[in-house]
Design a protein around this nucleic acid. Sequence first.
DNA 1: CACAGTGACTCCGGAGAATTTTA
DNA 2: CTAAAATTCTCCGGAGTCACTGT
Length: 918
Amino acid sequence: MSSSDDDRPLARTHKANGITNAFTLGHPPKSKDIISESVDKAMDKANPPAAHGAPGISIRNGPVDEMDIDGPVVNSKVNGKRKARSSMGNGKSYKEASEGDDDEANPLSKRRRVSKGKNKAEVDSDSDDAPLVSKKLKTKPPTLVRKPVKASETAIGESEDSDAPLGEKLAKKKADIQKSAAKEAKAIRKDEKEHPKTKANGTASSKKRKSQINGVKKEESDDDGPLAKKAPAKKKANLKTEASPKKKGKTSKVETKEDEEAEAEEEEYRWWEDPTKGDGTKKWTTLEHAGVVFPPEYQTLPSNVQMLYEGKPVRMAPGAEEIAGFFGSMLNSTHNIENPTFQKNFFDDFTKMLKETGGATDRNGNKVNIKEFSKCDFQPIFNYYDAQRTEKKALPAAEKKRLKAEKDAAEAPYMYCMWDNRKQKVGNFRVEPPGLFRGRGDHPKTGRVKKRVDPEQITINIGKEGKVPAPPEGHRWKEIKHDQEGTWLAMWQENINAAYKYVMLAANSDVKGQSDFKKFEKARELKKHIDHIRKDYNAELKDKVMANRQRATAVYLIDQFALRAGNEKGEDEADTVGCCSLKFEHVTLKPPNKVIFDFLGKDSIRFYDEVEVDDQVFKNLKLFKKSPKSDGDEIFDRLTTSALNKHLSNYMNGLTAKVFRTYNASFTMSKLLQDMKSTGSIAEKIVDYNEANRKVAILCNHKRTVAAGHESQMEKLGDRIKGLKYQKWRIKQMMLDIDPKIKKKKEKEEGDDYFRLDEELEEIWIHEHQNFLVEEERQKIEKKFNKENEKLQADGGKEMKHKELEERLEEADRLAKKYKKENKTGKVEAEGKGPTVEKCEGNLVKLDQRINTMLFQAKDKENNKEVALGTSKINYIDPRLTVVFSKKFDVPIEKFFSKTLREKFDWAIKSVDEDWEF
DNA sequence: CACAGTGACTCCGGAGAATTTTA
DNA sequence: CTAAAATTCTCCGGAGTCACTGT
């Protein structure tokens, strides 16, 4: 797929703000810090928890030991986010039972969800907030004594009463609410921050970075000329404290003579592994670009195109009309349009704008108060836009081409930039146009108006010596930066989530290629540590410290099932999860060791899998779901993604949860390709490759919605297969017609049902099929007739008479008659000239082949209907594996990589021979 | 490595355009 | 051979990951 597609360097978004937090209504129950042996044992014996709630185990307050078995199940808590949103009312409180156990104690306990909004003081005293939350909840104020973390944690045998106080959590909730309101405001204020990077801070951790910075600085001062970069760059490499693998240091002659690619240079310069690039903090030395392209201004609708309110047309100011237009133009997207949240958010923003712009009026100029969404009819607007689309589509090809050329010419300057004097393609230089926010899943903000971005909101990042692109007439940029540590050319914040949007280079650029290369090298490096890591986590599955045990279990899941890390999410985002954020209800345990995952992951794509896990993992999950925990509570309540990643980084520099996905995907692909037999045609090899690709996609849970016409397509395919089978039957009958004696012989050789009609071919179907064949024949004849006539006419001759056509059509009638007769007699006369049994058998073989390929096609299609192969191919499977396969089995790389993909993976295509291994 | 914020970069599936295959 | 259907390719922009800062 495409280059840009994948990582689209485009604007990225990120939620900057986070503001949000949940309103937690109660304290979610937490696991104990320390797990006593008795607990473990109990887990062993305990009855299998039923699917969801485990029956009787609950945690009480007592010392660990006792806690394990039974006890009243308390119910629990609630947790923030989702509950607050979806079921606000019921937040239940965490009951006393749970309270006892915790005390919070250590800071260690991760209170991940504590309110973000509040400051810690508030957190501590949860009692304070309680009122806000709900009276009931607050029964017990946990004493929050912060104990020395370490102590409790390390103490294995210690009793744990340590369960943390859940109190803190709730604190945050309310803050969020306010927050969201303030969000927009916040976006605005963001401007003032400067970037942190430059500040000198004394943190120890930043040491490394500092040194790099120094190096950078040096460079800056040194080189001014383009050519100068070389030397300094080298220097920098030395300065690096990082482990940066000095691949081959060669590249020395990095002459980057950009311009035309000097072949010679390319040969030598393996830019993707240039240690002076990418690995450091400094990403470029010189950078020039033309900035961004703004979307066209809003064009008001013709005066006769108006939204109807209660059936009557209304007029409004352009600002409001534009918003109505956003909605009206997407009337065919029922998926969004019918979503209540989408409607509400849209309508709120729409009416707000109406209010700000003077409202709407009817044809007499009287005010019309638009207050009910259901009374709005956007159809006229939709019709207008739709007509425009159709019109545009109907334009003559030449005209379309001209328009496109015009647009391309206008955008040409923005398409490329000069990055360290090499011409590089820019990924997305178009500022996102305004419209309605299409948040996926049940995003609380879906449907809100995404505002037009002004130049005043855009920050440009460019080389000091680069010419700053001119902002639109009468405007200015928000800021001009020269941040060499960033790879972006322009950036702004969007108004919905205050997320950052960046303009970056295209996927086929050097920087992106380098980081892609590095990503896969990192995954390959994991190979060297994976055994060790697995051994460790297997051992830690029994760790006495809850946090460690949870961590080990999480790593197990991430490694085995390719789960994503699972960061905590805010209140104003769709409620989706990953490993660390799995909730009680997402995991169902079926003894002895079966686990069923069912949750919404990234992009609200459902992850459903029934797997068998290691016994200890099963036991742990049971433990993590124990007692007061219930729906809404986190399974890994003692684990955060940062703690997890921190732990992983101990094994290997740069190792994080996501690396496991890359590693497992590539490793799996590598194994599959290795074991593939090299036989078959190119087409067969491609099918084999795709099969492997599909397995990886399934591993990564890359899904797509089943195409609209899938069902009917499958049916059609089935019909074609049946048609072939019917033809087979007819041919066999012909054989009998030719030589009746053959019957016994064939039945003996091939089975008694050799001449029998496949029961799949019902009589009614056959009749339909025959009609279809006859009709098909008829159309063929007509078409041919018409064509010939046209030709005759063109040549100046005279057309054939209609009678001629009728005569020709008799052929079809004869066919129909033939079928009729066959139906009646049950016999089929041999067709063709000089029919022989041998010829028939030859035909049968051919038919069988066609049937087989079609059956295979059908199966393939069915298997693939909800699997998206692209994502794994673009992001997870080391492209070098594909290149190796291509070379080894002599299949052109074009069969696997489209043009843009070949550009994106240029580094891979150039870098390996067929012996390379992942 | 607690935790709330920031910031920046990768990854994802759908929409629509471009191509190819089919009827 | 052409129009339509199916498939493939690109583009788009929303959704995650993860590092780092400041307390």
